[in-house]
């Protein structure tokens, strides 16, 4: 039995179908990266996976269909980090992280001292230690994103859904965020589905890459097993001419780097 299994997923807005007939599986301890050009359906797919968007098909986590779960059950198992949080009121960073405990509390319940301590620990883990009382609304977009990551980590679900979590982060924090996610997923037997803008980040941190184009799942790549040449060919079909190179940092750790190659003929923009 796979950890998370998706079959025949189709979703859209109104009568317009954005993603169609998507199927894939994720094993325990894996991170699946969603890659694709703008408008390829990455955000729609994530929203459909976690039931925010009505959809056709099935999403089964550990044998339980997500579609049959109540919001509380779903939130107890899955954590979601949106592209941007809609929180626009004056609220402390600590209170934002404490929202992650809601599935474990009754409607009228209050977070315990232990939960508060854990929330502070998670804020420290993402680099926001000592800033618990600061106004979330006054944070930069990157800090807000880290705060939402702390909330997702505090919620301690089995499966993470992340929508371009690196979008507002600087070079250093992008790697830090993905390392945190990877550690959590591998060590605690969880899994994650994350859409990413940066293919290099996806190539180095994800166990499999789901390449979306035009609302369909074009390829599934396995960066740990597939040859760079094969991945280069497939990624070029989505991003235009690119090349993949294996490089080593000063410690000798290997990393895959994607470079843009010159386009033959006149390049046109089409989204």
């Amino acid at each position: 039995m796979s950890f998370f299994s998706v079959r025949g997923l189709s979703a859209g807005y109104g009568k317009k179908t954005v993603i169609e007939n998507i199927s894939f599986d994720i094993k325990e301890g894996e991170i699946a990266g969603l890659l694709g050009a703008n408008g390829s359906g990455k955000t729609t797919m994530l929203k459909a996976l976690c039931g925010i968007l009505p959809h056709e098909g099935s999403c089964v986590l550990l044998g339980q269909p997500l579609e049959e779960m109540s919001p509380r059950q779903l939130a107890g198992l899955c954590s979601y980090i949106p592209q941007r949080s809609g929180i626009s009121i004056d609220i402390s960073a600590l209170d934002v992280v404490l929202m992650g405990f809601h599935p474990r509390l009754g409607l009228l319940g209050r977070p315990s001292q232990k939960m508060r301590q854990k929330a502070c620990e998670m804020l420290k883990l993402v680099g926001l230690g000592g800033r618990e009382g600061e106004n979330y609304r006054h944070f930069s977009e990157g800090q807000k994103q880290l705060c939402l990551l702390a909330r997702a980590l505090a919620a301690d679900g089995k499966l993470f859904f992340l929508d371009e979590p690196e979008g507002a982060l600087d070079f250093c924090h992008r790697f830090r965020m993905m390392e945190l996610l990877k550690n959590r997923v591998k060590k605690e037997g969880k899994a994650a589905v994350t859409s990413l803008h940066d293919p290099s980040l996806a190539l180095n941190f994800c166990d499999r890459l789901l390449i979306l184009s035009g609302g369909t799942l074009r390829f599934i790549l396995n960066p740990k097993q597939d040859s760079p040449k094969k991945m280069q060919e497939k990624l070029s079909e989505v991003y235009g001419p690119v090349s993949l190179h294996r490089c080593r940092n000063q410690r000798g750790d290997e990393q895959l780097v994607m470079l843009r190659e010159p386009q033959e003929g006149k390049e046109t923009w089409k989204l």
Binding site: I52, S70, Y80, P82, S85, I89, I91, R110
Partner: peptide, 24 residues
């Protein structure tokens, strides 16, 4: 006053509030 905490969660986007376990 008893529902103050869910009221704060309602201040998030509807999808986000739902994924925090609230029957929005």
């Amino acid at each position: 006053f008893l529902l103050h905490r869910p009221i704060l969660i309602l201040s998030a986007e509807e999808g986000e509030a739902r994924m925090l376990g609230l029957s929005v």
